[in-house]
């Protein structure tokens, strides 16, 4: 299958600093990819390159197009939500729908209205009269009514309360996602997205620290909780990362057989958040 996004040596410099440092990447269709990294790791910059919003070095192909020269035509098949604050504040809801309909060949008005009907947003309201949560609902309604092949979400729920955040991802998963579509999400709220992701990419200092499917993650990584007296033994098995919780030692292992570990203590599948911290602090490659 041809990848939706394909990057070779993707690099972005700001002066002397490398925001994105020679990234190679292939994202196939039908995936929900979590792009996760600490602040300033280069997530947003990498996504901007994908969306044709910044210049870059290296090769990059999105849906077979070159984003830096073909942004307008690429946007017919790509949607993105940067964060809740980017809808123009002066515009009225019906005007926003009109212009999206006029510019987007794949926009289905009925679908958008259907979705908006479930919210408190009314057509005559101005965006500045809406609450942050309602703006997010409006933006999602617009995006869900577009028959796009790639959806990029860069911190789409920043500053929203938990109810809106849950609803946002539920709608996305139930009403939008299918085998043809690919979604790329960056967020700091890893716990909220980890159960919907199919793929995980950790990015650190502009480089990919980890790239795996969720299945691979579950196969490869295991978390072991041991009592202090077994800690030294556990440490000898080269864990990626170690932490202490309520007097117990917790170790995270990459590719260590579960049989070996079983005798030492309790085994768990690590959460993405724990894996993330371990990867960032442990400096795994």
């Amino acid at each position: 299958m041809t990848p939706i996004i394909s990057a070779r040596g993707l690099t972005k410099r700001f002066g002397r600093t490398l925001a994105v440092d020679h990234i190679d990447l292939d994202i196939p269709p039908g995936r929900i990819v979590g792009l996760i990294g600490p602040n300033g790791a280069g997530k947003t910059t990498a996504l901007k390159a994908v969306l044709g919003l910044c210049t870059y070095e290296g090769e990059l192909s999105v849906l077979g197009k070159n984003p830096s020269t073909q942004r307008a035509s690429l946007m017919e098949d790509v949607c993105f939500i940067a964060d809740v604050a980017v809808l123009p504040r002066w515009i009225r809801v019906h005007q926003l729908i009109d212009i999206t309909e006029n510019l987007h060949p794949g926009f289905k008005r009925e679908r958008c209205m259907e979705y908006l009907a479930q919210t408190k947003v009314t057509p005559n309201q101005k965006v500045k009269q809406l609450s942050k949560g309602m703006v997010a609902q409006l933006h999602l309604a617009l995006v869900m009514a577009i028959d796009a092949k790639l959806l990029v979400l860069d911190e789409p729920t920043l500053g929203l309360d938990i109810i809106y955040r849950k609803e946002f991802y539920t709608n996305l998963l139930n009403d939008y996602f299918d085998e043809q579509r690919t979604i790329v999400i960056t967020t700091h709220q890893v716990e909220e997205v980890e159960h919907i992701l199919t793929d995980l990419i950790f990015i650190q200092d502009g480089r990919i620290a980890l790239e795996a499917t969720m299945d691979q993650v579950q196969e490869r990584y295991v978390e072991l909780m041991v009592k202090p007296e077994k800690a030294i033994e556990a440490r000898n098995l080269h864990p990626l990362y170690e932490r202490e919780l309520f007097g117990r030692h917790i170790f995270l292992y990459d590719n260590v057989s579960r049989d070996k570990l079983h005798d030492l203590g309790e085994l768990h599948t690590p959460s993405v958040a724990d894996l993330f911290v371990a990867t960032m602090k442990g400096g795994v490659s």
Binding site: L51, A82, V86, H104
Partner: peptide
């Protein structure tokens, strides 16, 4: 104005070229 309020990110998400 749209650079200041960041709504440029929305306008650039629509299939309209900068020339247009």
């Amino acid at each position: 104005d749209d650079r200041k309020d960041r709504s440029i990110l929305f306008w650039k998400s629509l299939p309209a070229s900068d020339t247009m």
